[in-house]
């Protein structure tokens, strides 16, 4: 994969920033996000962790412009969603937790459709699709309907669809949930590769070891606000805990979170 063209003027600004963001859903007692602030630097592999109901989903939806905040500001590569909605979407990649693919279409047809919606066409699109299929090791299965894929293959194709625009910022919501070790390993390797080549990655996961392995910095959130931020090493050192899981349970409690 070749890196996308970067904008020199935006190099110094954070890739993603949220300042004092609040969001409250109708008919709920407490806000989903309460004075939530976060900064993801360009080129970072950033992890967002939190128990069920902590506000991760709402945070991701607001950070990717799918939902407006009640108050506060969100910027991506220095651009606000209200003013630069279209430009932001051109440089943002999103890999949703639920498989965002048409089961009855083949892998190639899915990528063709989403690629065209990015405005890519002709030979450039064909090349990008071929490259992305190779990236997730699905070239030989490109002509098969997605319905016939294993869950791991679907997850890999889900990732490939999120990379069609060579995003500067890639947001992944639990991309490895429920898949086999081989697919997970492949996805981890390819994400590391993408990050090495300059793509900023915001990654949510429930797996602490995964976060520790992949992320340069983490944010643990609970009750709609960050409760700890920093590199995994720094977080463990400052807290005196021996594992990230221990720290997570210490910060968010051991009671079950049935949402």
């Amino acid at each position: 994969m070749s890196g996308n063209s970067r904008l020199p003027a935006q190099e110094q600004c954070p890739a993603l920033s949220a300042v004092a963001v609040c969001k409250r859903y109708k008919n709920t007692l407490r806000p989903a996000l309460d004075d939530f602030s976060l900064e993801v630097r360009q080129g970072e592999f950033f992890g967002l962790l939190g128990p069920n109901g902590a506000g991760k989903t709402t945070a991701i939806a607001i950070l990717t412009g799918l939902m407006p905040p009640d108050s506060g500001t969100v910027r991506l590569m220095g651009m606000g969603y209200r003013e630069k909605h279209h430009q932001i979407k051109q440089i943002l990649g999103l890999v949703p937790q639920d498989i965002g693919l048409y089961d009855k279409l083949t892998a190639r047809e899915n990528l063709t459709f989403f690629g065209k919606l990015y405005g890519i066409k002709g030979k450039r699109l064909t090349e990008k699709i071929q490259r992305n299929l190779e990236f997730v090791s699905l070239t030989e299965n490109a002509a098969r309907p997605v319905a016939t894929f294993s869950f791991g293959m679907k997850r890999r194709l889900n990732l490939a669809a999120g990379l069609l625009n060579d995003p500067q910022v890639l947001v992944l919501d639990e991309p490895c949930v429920g898949i086999d070790a081989q697919s997970r390993h492949l996805i981890h390797e390819q994400l590391r590769d993408l990050n090495r080549r300059g793509t900023t990655i915001l990654y949510t996961t429930h797996y602490m070891e995964e976060a520790q392995e992949l992320c340069g910095r983490l944010c643990i959130m609970d009750n709609g606000r960050p409760v700890a931020q920093g590199s995994p090493v720094a977080l463990l050192r400052n807290s005196g805990m021996s594992t990230l899981e221990e720290l997570f349970l210490h910060l968010t409690g051991k009671e079950l979170r049935d949402v």
Binding site: L66, H86, K89, P96, Q97, G100, Y102, F114, N158, A161
Partner: peptide
């Protein structure tokens, strides 16, 4: 009800 709508809404369309 799948991830398709989320993906579509994140696209410049």
């Amino acid at each position: 009800n799948s991830g398709i709508w989320t993906r579509l809404r994140a696209l410049p369309v």
